[in-house]
Write a protein that binds this DNA or RNA. Structure first.
Length: 471
RNA sequence: GGCGACGUGGCCAAGUGGUAAGGCAAGGGUCUGCAAAACCCUCAUUCGCCGGUUCGAAUCCGGCCGUCGCCUCCA
């Protein structure tokens, strides 16, 4: 089993993965706040996590992934009050849309999607442990974490809170805290807000405690990897560490991996700039989700991803090249003889995995793949494809697609695209045109070609006959 | 003010000490009844700038310039 290295935010360096249980990796990934549809920036992070899971499985690890659904927070409550809808009326449809976005991008499902509102008891229990140990205190019905008690607070983000500028957001926080740096674990209910009963009266959990409680419930008090967007490093993940380790006295997470943000046309995505997109927006504008997946996968997760129309076009072009190779290989004849491709395929697989194991260097994995594409193409042109080569290459493509999830065009074909002429009819027309060409009936041949083109069928007249493809 | 990231060909993007992967675009060629599609080839003496270390640096160190992120509930 390959031992990958990842960039651990805690320590800021590459480290080999050493799962607490050999061969098994437990991962917690911060999920969406389901008050509104996910934007493509959110999806980039989820796609990175999909890549991480798939890569680990590719290398032979057993992966357990948990992703929380934050279904109560300030924004959700605000939305509820603005619209007069209940929390559920807001979060249920958004959650459905979230899963449909995951499906559209071929993101594999996590093992658990715990909802905050269904784990209030676990959160209360964790808060009680913190109070009992002196790490938390009650004030006005709310509970706060006492940062002064946590001597290694700040080691993930590198922030020394004594040096941190005390911004307006802190000052304007109206809760009565011992220390402005303290963060809230439990919020006393305000009139009209949704609330749950607790030993301290009605209230609701703070955001940070949610992730600590749910990750521990499903993955244990110590686990291997915790992911999220870079913006979560401080304060969210810093606070998770503080709460969790103060409560359990054990190391919380061994490896923290954070995904950089996506920007659009060189600028931070924001509604005021008009460059704020959901997946649905892009699909409406004609973007292919398959190309979106390819594009987001092809840029390293720790680099900012500049999402542009041009980049999406390049992704389309790259996919086309891959499709063509597969298409040509499927239609080429094989002759008996010694295969030259077997060694190339093995080399590609080896390079592909090595690159992934090095902090998910997909660019390099893809380079290995394209190296094989050229060799296969050259073999096809030279008539050097032998028996068994096709299966060998196809098997290897299926293998790397366990990670990439973009190589099989059939898997991405929508119903609309599958409609139209049936394959048999197309085959018959192509055969008729072949006959017309043999008879030098150019008029009839071109007529058929135009007819098929009108139906979205492209013909390729190659040396060993005509082949066709859709679109 | 504090902490951090990044700057490689027209665009995107690998490469963290040994002499610049890959994709898109572009140019040339091949195939073809004509086309189309496709394939093949070519395409950075150079890695923001200036110094330094080294036999050797895009890679390490120092400085400068530029872009960007976080700094209490934004993936």
């Amino acid at each position: 089993m390959r031992q990958p290295v990842f960039f651990n935010t805690l320590g800021r360096r590459l480290e080999p993965l050493e799962p607490l249980v050999p061969g098994q990796v437990r991962i917690y990934t911060c999920g969406p706040t389901v008050y509104d549809r996910a934007h493509i920036g959110n999806l980039r992070t989820f796609l990175f996590e999909d890549l991480l899971n798939r890569s680990l499985r590719f290398m032979g690890y057993e992966v357990t992934q948990v992703m929380n659904l934050t279904d109560v927070d300030d924004r959700t409550i605000q939305r509820s009050q603005d619209t007069g809808k209940s929390l559920d009326e807001i979060t249920v449809p958004v959650t459905e849309a979230f899963f449909s976005d995951l499906d559209a991008l071929a993101i594999q499902r996590a093992d658990h999607y715990p909802k905050a509102t269904e784990h209030i008891a676990e959160m209360i229990a964790l808060i009680e442990r913190l109070i009992a140990a002196g790490y938390a205190y009650e004030s006005g019905g709310s509970i706060f974490f006492r940062i002064a008690e946590d001597d290694d607070y700040g080691r993930l983000s590198g922030f020394d809170l004594g040096q941190v500028r005390q911004g307006e957001r802190v000052v304007s926080d109206n809760y009565d805290k011992e220390d402005v740096r303290d963060f809230v674990l439990w919020k006393a209910a305000k009139p009209g807000e949704p609330s749950w009963e607790s030993p301290w009266g009605a209230g609701r959990p703070g955001w940070h405690i949610e992730c600590s409680a749910m990750s521990m419930k499903y993955l244990g008090e110590s686990f291997d990897i915790h992911c999220g967007g870079v913006d979560n490093i401080f304060p969210h993940h810093e606070n998770e560490i503080a709460q969790s380790e103060s409560a359990t006295g054990k190391p919380f997470v061994r490896t923290w991996i954070h995904a950089e943000h996506l920007i659009v046309d060189g600028q931070k995505m924001s509604k005021s700039l008009g460059n704020f997109y959901t997946l649905g927006d892009l699909i409406e504008q004609g973007a292919d989700p398959r190309a979106i997946r390819y594009l987001m996968l092809s840029v390293h997760y720790r680099d900012k991803l500049n999402f542009t129309l041009e980049a999406l076009e390049a992704a389309n072009g790259a996919l086309k090249r891959l499709d063509e190779m597969r298409f040509r290989l499927a239609h080429t004849g094989a002759s008996p003889g010694e295969s030259r491709l077997v060694a190339s395929v093995e080399k590609m697989l080896e390079a592909f995995e090595t690159a992934l194991a090095h902090d998910l260097n997909v660019s390099e994995s893809l380079a290995a793949l394209f190296g094989l594409v050229r060799e296969v193409n050259t073999a096809i042109d030279g008539g050097a494809v032998v028996e068994g080569d096709r299966e060998h290459v196809m098997t290897a493509l299926a293998r790397v697609d366990e990670v990439l999830g973009v190589l099989d065009p059939e898997a991405w074909r929508t119903e609309a695209e599958s409609e139209g002429l049936a394959d048999d009819n197309i085959d018959a027309l192509v055969a008729e045109r072949e006959q017309a060409r043999a008879d030098r009936q150019w008029g009839r041949a071109d007529e058929i070609r135009d007819q098929l083109q009108g139906a979205g069928i492209v013909l390729e007249d190659a040396r060993d006959g005509t082949r066709w493809k859709r679109q």
